[in-house]
Nucleic acid binder design. Structure first.
Length: 231
DNA sequence: AACGAAACCAACCGCAAACGC
DNA sequence: GGCGTTTGCGGTTGGTTTCGT
């Protein structure tokens, strides 16, 4: 799987690289540089901008804090509801979830989930990973193990993000042990949109079925997993 | 007022896919 | 097609703030 043993580059531990919280001066330098030169080429950006930070750190700071589109402030109830629904569907695919919530970053949503929502679900007796009642999880092992499925909408173990841009497997066992198979991203996107625009949880099942039925996903289920939309 | 515990969140780390030569 | 580099992701850490005693 891994091509070769890669020399990791602990960029932030390099000599002279600054770490920790960003100062206003650094923020200003980064913002004005990106406004002038644009995003990208993160690795060389610090040098070009005159910052004593690693590229990763600059990118993170920009993406999570400095971008003009980043919305600051508390998560609204609507957003919270959306996060819950998307997480039930997608699992810990924070960037995917964030992509559906304008102005919110994956880091912010991840933090909000870990500090608020997962605890809230636990208080309500719901497993934050499976979104099933805790009792149900304990009393009987779900049968998706038999079919190779998992409790999570998406396989938590294979946490690879391989398929985000090509193919996405939706195993919506949460909604009743159904495996919807593989769908290409545009289909998945429209499916998510339908989910977002529709209301509450229980009504999602027909929505899922309907939207997926119309998307001839089954064509992609068999035989294409090896090509996975590449080339 | 002082202290410790809990909560919060920005930032870091390591991994893997995507990209480019 | 192979290989090195860059980018993006999710998990985790640790510093700061808030809360309770």
């Amino acid at each position: 799987m891994l091509k070769t043993v890669k020399k990791t580059t602990p960029c932030c531990t390099k000599m002279g690289m600054k770490r920790g919280p960003w100062t206003m001066e650094e923020d200003e330098i980064l913002v004005s540089f990106i406004n002038k030169e644009g995003e990208g080429r993160w690795r060389s950006l610090p040098k070009r901008a005159g910052l004593l930070r690693c590229g990763k750190s600059c990118r993170l700071r920009w993406m999570n804090y400095l971008r003009p589109s980043v919305k600051r402030g508390g998560i609204t109830p609507d957003e919270e509801d959306l996060i819950l629904r998307l997480h039930r569907l997608l699992g810990n695919r924070w960037s995917l979830i964030a992509g559906r919530i304008p102005g919110r970053t994956d880091n912010e949503i991840k933090n909000y989930w870990n500090t608020h929502l997962s605890k809230k679900l636990l208080r309500e007796g719901i497993d934050p990973q499976t979104h099933k009642p805790l009792d149900a999880n304990n009393s009987h092992k779900p049968k998706e193990e038999v079919s190779g499925g998992q409790n999570l909408p998406l396989d938590p173990n294979s946490s690879s993000h391989t398929d985000d841009t090509t193919v996405t497997k939706i195993s919506v066992s949460v909604f009743g042990d159904e495996d919807f198979g593989f769908c290409y991203d545009d289909k998945f996107s429209s499916f998510l949109n339908s989910l977002i625009n529709e209301d509450p949880l229980d009504s999602n099942i027909p929505i899922l079925s309907q939207s997926l039925q119309t998307q001839d996903c089954t064509d992609e289920i068999v035989g294409t997993s090896s090509s996975l939309g590449h080339d």
